[in-house]
């Protein structure tokens, strides 16, 4: 149950309708489209479309105006998840069998590519060059982030700079696009775009760090320490290694699958660093709030009919993120 599905009156409930994101089973590949509708396009918090919808409200645009772009955002995100599932050989995601668990890897990769192409096609059809340009930049950043993360697989010497960069590229990039689309559609000023992008960047990093904290939560619904099992050091793990350098060798052998999965830290030690990472995430969200306040001022100055309701809902998203336990 997504944490964002708390109240259909409060949240942009239209964004939770799965029908928005499903591929139409058109001429060429209805079998694949059906498979993707039942796997990688199912479930999820729909945070990206929700963000885009709320930012559309901030800029006085209707939900329908941004629906094609919101759909594309979720398809792009799902495409990256499909590829991730192949790389990680995951059998399930969100409790549903993954695409690669249903069909062979080659076809699952191509399926992800097809989803990506669908997203880009429908964005391009809207005819807004700047939005297409921004999406292509986003895709480049997404892939760069994936490549950098993959290169760090099995490595214990991962720095904060590296993890921040990956969070920015993998998570922040698509958040930036989602928040920027309404501003781009209205040809907003560079100042507005800068504030929107800054906001989304902080949100992306906070989201990733909370995700990293939840990786060490037994209540999250995900396997405990999944990142480490997949050979990846996340922010919590990095801080634990830094604080307890004697644990480095054990972590290295786990990362390289040379030993059984047995964490070299106590539950208290882990809990302390989890809380520290959450604190860092809260700090990012605090900064995001300050930027949002600035955005409100600038939007008023530029005579955009910034909706107070949408502003309140964006702030609510930040609060929910801060308290996220799943």
């Amino acid at each position: 149950m997504s944490v964002f599905k708390t109240s259909s009156e409060t949240w942009g409930s239209p964004w939770l309708d799965p029908a928005i994101y499903e591929l139409e089973e058109t001429g060429s590949l209805p079998g694949l489209e059906n498979l993707m509708n039942r796997s990688v396009l199912r479930g999820g918090k729909r945070l990206r479309p929700i963000l885009m919808g709320e930012f559309a409200g901030l800029f006085g645009l209707s939900a329908d105006r941004v629906k094609p772009f919101a759909r594309a955002a979720e398809q792009v995100h799902s495409a990256t998840l499909a590829h991730d599932d192949v790389i990680d050989a995951s059998e399930t995601r969100r409790g549903i069998r993954t695409l690669n668990a249903r069909i062979e890897n080659r076809r699952a990769v191509l399926g992800g590519d097809y989803l990506l192409a669908e997203g880009i096609f429908h964005v391009a059809r809207q005819g807004h060059f700047k939005v297409v340009e921004a999406l292509s930049e986003t895709l480049r950043e997404l892939v760069t982030g994936e490549l950098l993360q993959n290169e760090a697989r099995g490595m214990d010497e991962v720095t904060e700079a590296h993890l921040l960069r990956i969070a920015d590229l993998k998570t922040g990039s698509l958040f930036r696009w989602c928040c920027s689309v309404p501003a781009l559609l209205l040809d907003s000023s560079p100042e507005v775009l800068r504030l929107v992008r800054d906001f989304a960047t902080r949100l992306g990093v906070a989201f990733q760090w909370i995700d990293d904290a939840l990786d060490y939560s037994k209540e999250s619904g995900k396997p405990y320490g999944q990142d480490l099992r997949e050979g990846l050091v996340n922010e919590v793990t990095r801080r634990l290694i830094e604080k307890f350098p004697e644990s480095r060798d054990s972590v290295k052998s786990i990362l390289q699958n040379e030993s059984e999965f047995s964490l070299p830290w106590s539950e208290t030690q882990i809990a302390t660093e989890v809380e520290n990472v959450r604190q860092s995430a809260r700090s990012q969200l605090e900064t995001a709030r300050r930027i949002l306040a600035d955005l409100r001022v600038v939007l008023r100055r530029e005579e955009h009919p910034a909706s107070d309701e949408s502003m309140a809902r964006v702030e609510k998203i930040l609060e929910k993120l801060e308290r996220r336990e799943k």
């Binding site: 950098l148 290169e151 590296h162």
Partner: peptide, 12 residues
């Protein structure tokens, strides 16, 4: 062999 300047394989 590294992907670029931000590649983690350049650590150290």
């Amino acid at each position: 062999a590294a992907l670029g300047p931000t590649s983690p394989s350049l650590e150290g």
